[in-house]
Amino acid sequence: MLTLNVNGVDRSLDVDPATPLLWVLRDTIGLTGTKYGCGMALCGACTVHLDGQPVRSCITQVGTVGTAKVTTIEGLSPDRSHPVQRAWIELDVPQCGYCQSGQIMSASALLAQTPRPTDADIDAAMAGNICRCGTYQRIRAAIHRAAELGGETQP
């Protein structure tokens, strides 16, 4: 048994510690917002936060998480009120939407670290997240918009 803190809730889990965090979140806990895309940390669809840092859950063994707090898309806000989610809605970013949980988790980690990111900051932070629908222009615009929204709530 191991204990995992996910979205603020401690969970006792009977899983092989070598199991990737992604599959524990999806299949054991039932949080399916985090997606599988490549299994090799190449596409970013599985991005979650560990103590606020973005990680690829598809290559993160659950046994290595320890006491770090896991945040998934479901835990980002209870009501789509996170500035990144608000900006994503405002600019209608998603198309198929499959990669967007990962995009949003990478973007929210970037903004937590760098509240006013430059385009170069966005390139560096987001280049690991693939979107086959090509929503990148809107993601970039929405990150800038989320920075404004975040600034409004933190005067």
Partner: peptide, 13 residues
């Protein structure tokens, strides 16, 4: 607005 956007920003789609 796209009607599917809200479900695609909170993992519920």
């Amino acid at each position: 607005r796209r009607l599917d956007t809200p479900a695609k920003v909170d993992g519920s789609a």
